[in-house]
């Protein structure tokens, strides 16, 4: 298999910690810039002071608009990055990713169904619940397919089919729902955006994303063992089925919650783990935390970029990530040609 950044080989003693630290700093910096960026002309000092006040204009802007948006970008990116790293480890395939495999599209469908048929009025948890349910269905389909010995291309094609179906059903649901803004809403769910997020979005997404990533981390040793194949992993005392269930549930929780909050942001889970993998010795377990940090940095930075490029909110987050990610995806397929 051909791998990018072949030159960046490190000895085993090099643990990658400085890179992990740098990624964390990068993510926080991007979130900081995101916090300071917006249409209201408040100074950085006024905004920071606003964080510590319970009322007033600056407090509303800082606490209800800017901070949720900046933090949501981090959580959404972390969910997608970690999910991508874990799925790639599980399928032993660098093309596996929540977006490519249709997991985000199905999560988006779940969210739209919950939102536009009024069930969210019953309980705040219906929206993420449906999104996670959608993600779980897509992940289970993939899992069944990979169990039956499907190769890389079958996995990708199935992902395309699942994603297309979910997107079509999302469009159908929005058209049928009593919703005057169906078209613009549709675009938001399919491409992903952090425009006009509220603290409520953050409150439901953050714990679910954290729980999902914790599940993924708990499967790290198993992912390492899986490098040798399923039977060998079993012989090393790994509960392969249990590990697989944990990863699928973790990905569904993290990606489902992220998608319920921000729509289907694609390709983050593909690009980030792939770029970081050589820096962590290609070891699946070591890649999960850096991928979460890298994803957080990328989404926060992309959310800054969309507002710098189009301050009126016309450029959606997912458009930017797809513009970076899709060409990367094609390049990666070229790299993988001829691989088993």
């Amino acid at each position: 298999m051909a791998y990018a950044l072949k030159s960046v080989v490190r000895p085993a003693s090099w643990r990658g910690r400085p890179v992990t630290m740098a990624l964390a700093v990068l993510a926080l910096a991007a979130a900081g810039v995101s916090f300071l960026l917006g249409p209201s002309h408040l100074s950085a000092v006024a905004l920071l002071l606003g964080l510590f006040h319970s009322h007033g204009f600056a407090a509303v802007i800082a606490r209800d608009i800017r901070l949720p948006r900046a933090l949501l970008a981090l959580f959404v990116g972390a969910a997608l990055g970690a999910s991508g790293a874990a799925l790639q480890g599980l399928f032993r395939n660098p093309l596996a990713e929540p977006g490519v495999t249709g997991v985000t599209a199905c999560a988006g469908l779940g969210a739209v169904v919950a939102l536009y048929f009024g069930w969210t009025g019953t309980s705040l948890m219906f929206l993420p619940g449906f999104a996670i349910g959608g993600a779980l269905v897509a992940a289970a389909i993939l899992y069944g397919l990979s169990r039956s010995g499907a190769g890389t291309m079958a996995l990708v094609l199935a992902g395309v089919a699942v994603a297309s179906l979910a997107t079509a059903l999302t469009a159908l649901a929005l058209s049928m729902a009593p919703n005057p803004y169906a078209m613009s809403e549709m675009v938001m769910w399919m491409l992903g955006s952090l425009n006009d997020r509220t603290p409520a979005d953050l409150y439901f997404a953050a714990p679910l994303v954290a729980l999902g990533i914790a599940l993924l981390l708990s499967a790290g040793r198993g992912l390492d063992a899986l490098t040798l194949g399923e039977d060998a992993a079993h012989s090393l005392g790994i509960d392969v089925h249990g590990m697989r269930r944990r990863i699928i549930l973790g990905v569904a929780l993290a990606t489902g919650a992220a998608t319920a909050a921000a729509g289907a942001v694609s390709f983050v889970g593909l690009v980030v783990p792939h770029l970081l993998r050589p820096l962590y010795g290609h070891e699946p377990s070591r890649l999960i935390v850096p991928s979460a940090l890298g994803g957080a940095a990328l989404v926060a930075a992309a959310d800054v970029a969309v507002r710098l490029i189009a301050p009126d909110g016309q450029l959606l987050l997912g458009v930017l990530t797809a513009m970076i990610g899709a060409p990367f995806f094609i390049w990666l397929i070229f790299q993988l040609r001829g691989a088993p």
Binding site: Y3, G220, R221, T227, L236, G237, I238, G281, S285, R286
Partner: peptide
């Protein structure tokens, strides 16, 4: 199978043999 699915360093692949002894790569 004569393959490791990821191009890890040889020593780290050998280290996987220690997983039953409550070790992890970390």
């Amino acid at each position: 199978s004569n393959e490791a699915h990821w191009p890890m360093l040889a020593r780290r692949v050998v280290a996987l043999g220690r997983l039953p002894h409550e070790a992890s790569l970390e």
